[in-house]
Design a protein around this nucleic acid. Structure first.
Length: 260
DNA sequence: GTAGGGTTAGGT
DNA sequence: ACCTAACCCTAC
């Protein structure tokens, strides 16, 4: 009667997240009893933890936003049979997942953060891969999707391609169809692409190792941060591919200074 | 004890 | 009026 709703504080939320990282989701009682979190979560029951976690993961997952999946509640006024029954449920295309998280990524305070510490790795890969053979590009995509971290949606991919418009570049009609989102971002094979693939592989591998070393540091914040960096990487790779596909020759040094 | 569905209060 | 989040109930 006195406490209509007990909103979760950021401390409680933080404790819950850490608790899940430590004990895993589902071990609510364990988390609740853990001396590390019990002082903060003393007023919360194990069920509360479960419910809160459900809310967190649901809204952070991109789902549950205010988009589709809202089944039109069939209220049926029982008195006004709308003459146009054409609003049965549409299949609702699976796009527009919006990369989720209206928390961090939407704000995007830093536009040009000191670009990619991974750039060195990219160059390394480029140097190693002097021999073009052009191969399956889906590999690059697969690597970007490494298990849990990088889950790029098609919408996200499109988002990534959007800022790539470089006004200083001459409109070359011979431009390859980069809009071929058939499978992922690219759909052709070329030397530059192969190099880009290797670069992505290196980055992905390094990331994966970092993850293993970090145990299960898979927090949403971290994921989004990586997604942003991956976005930069893909942008770079796409640029390289675009230039090379037009017959231009790029050296590693040029790439290093971004003089292309 | 946990998972999932359902209910209700608060906010927009 | 609708949506989200906290709370409640029940089956496993």
């Amino acid at each position: 009667m006195g406490a209509p709703k007990q909103k979760w504080t950021s401390e409680e939320e933080e404790a819950l997240r850490r608790g899940v990282l430590k004990h895993g989701a589902g071990k609510w009682r364990t988390i609740q009893k853990d001396p590390e979190f019990s002082p903060v979560l003393s007023s919360r029951s194990n069920i509360d933890l479960k419910d809160k976690w459900r809310n967190l993961s649901f809204s952070a997952s991109g789902l549950g936003s205010r988009d589709k999946i809202r089944v039109p509640r069939i209220k049926v006024p029982s008195s006004s049979p709308s003459p146009s029954p054409q609003l049965l449920l549409l299949p609702a295309p699976d796009n527009v997942v919006e990369a989720s998280a209206p928390e961090d990524i939407a704000k995007s305070p830093e536009d040009d953060k000191t670009h990619i510490p991974k750039f060195a790795m990219i160059l390394e890969a480029l140097a190693e891969l002097k021999e073009p053979n052009g191969s399956d590009v889906t590999t690059i995509y697969n690597f970007i999707e490494i298990e849990k971290s990088y889950k790029l949606t098609d919408a996200y991919a499109k988002k990534m391609l959007a800022p790539m418009k470089d006004p200083s570049q001459k409109k070359d009609p011979a431009k390859p169809s980069k809009a071929s989102k058939n499978l992922g971002l690219f759909a052709a094979a070329s030397p530059a692409l192969d190099a880009a693939q290797a670069a992505a592989m290196k980055v992905a591998d390094a990331e994966a190792k970092a993850h293993i070393a970090n145990e299960h540091m898979m927090e949403a914040e971290r994921i989004f941060k990586m997604a942003e960096e991956t976005e930069s990487l893909l942008t770079l790779a796409t640029e390289l591919y675009d230039r090379c596909s037009r017959g231009e020759v790029l050296t590693v040094l040029q790439a290093a200074h971004r003089e292309f």
